[in-house]
């Protein structure tokens, strides 16, 4: 069994922020002290223009992560060649330290259903997903990270748990994992499993990056359904789970994802700093700040 391959660029054990067009000015003028930025490559699959130029200017000062949402690696069909070619062109131009995608599917034949749809956790799905991860890794000439998604339904005929599915995928393809702590919290709440048990079943050495985000709570009748929105501050439960994960696995590059209801950039920076304090606290306990201090600095 191959060990999870190490990413081919050094990864900062620091926090970063999901880069939005609205942040370009703050980043280029303010040069905030952040470990990295992350973008969806699909938003940069353009021939030219200021968006690409802004990314190039930002890349000159920060490491960059390309986090795909459009490859649909979980589809029964092979991943779209054209998409891989475009992704490779962006990789060549921007030299990201990591490239990631999702444990999900969106494409069915010639239709693209623009959301991260859940996979049945079956042998059949594992084989299709592994084949597509392999195709993407071959096309890019590197290993990629695969992220656990938020899901709102499960299938009756699942043959394994999500951590087991991810472990098998790592074994079969040599890919790494992008662990989204918010998505674990959302799924644990929606499907009623223990998030600590989920973390304990994850092959920690494969984790190349962590995502942190906020979510929303919808109510249906008497029960809550948690929805991954990236539209709110990270909640206390997710911070607690992050603290636990860093304790288990050690520090990992940690991304603050925020796509909706964008707050002032300083608020996101404060969340990134909080993640770095937690990482520093676990790496070397003498640096750990009491939680109330961390909160006082927040926003």
């Amino acid at each position: 069994m191959p060990l999870a391959q190490q990413p081919d660029k050094p990864m900062p054990h620091r926090a970063g922020i999901g880069l939005k067009v609205e942040h370009y000015r703050d980043v280029l003028n303010g040069r905030p002290d952040l470990g990295f930025f992350e973008v969806h490559p699909e938003n940069y699959m353009l021939a030219g223009g200021p968006r690409l130029q802004a990314l190039q200017a930002i890349r000159a000062h920060y490491p960059l992560s390309l986090h795909g949402v459009g490859a649909s690696l979980g589809s029964k069909d092979p991943v779209d060649r054209d998409h891989l070619d475009r992704l490779k062109a962006l990789q060549d131009r921007f030299e990201p330290f990591v490239v990631s995608e999702h444990l999900s599917w969106s494409r069915f034949e010639d239709h693209f259903l623009s959301d991260l749809l859940p996979l049945p956790l079956t042998r059949d799905a594992l084989a299709a997903m592994a084949a597509n991860v392999g195709r993407m890794q071959d096309a890019l000439g590197r290993t990629i990270l695969i992220e656990n998604p938020s899901t709102y339904l499960e299938f009756t005929h699942a043959e394994m748990s999500e951590p087991d599915f991810l472990s098998e995928l790592v074994k079969e393809t040599g890919c790494g994992l992008l662990l989204d702590i918010n998505n674990i919290h959302v799924c644990a709440s929606n499907h009623g499993f223990d998030p600590h048990a989920y973390l304990a079943a994850i092959p920690g050495s494969a984790i190349g990056e962590i995502h942190m985000a906020g979510h929303a709570i919808d109510r249906y009748g008497a029960r809550d359904i948690r929805i991954d929105t990236h539209g709110a501050p990270i909640c206390d439960d997710v911070w607690a789970l992050y603290d636990h994960a860093i304790g288990l696995f050690g520090p990992r590059p940690t991304l603050i994802e925020r796509d909706d209801n964008l707050p002032p950039f300083a608020d996101l920076l404060a969340e990134a700093q909080k993640a770095e304090r937690i990482m520093a606290g676990k790496a070397s306990p003498s640096f750990k700040q009491p939680d109330h201090l961390a909160e006082a600095n927040h926003g």
Binding site: D115, F155, T156, N190
Partner: peptide, 20 residues
């Protein structure tokens, strides 16, 4: 094929994806 979710019809679960 959807595993029953306590108190939530499958159509509501699918609506989340339709809305997204």
């Amino acid at each position: 094929m959807i595993k029953p979710m306590d108190g939530v019809p499958a159509g509501i679960q699918l609506d989340i994806y339709r809305n997204n």
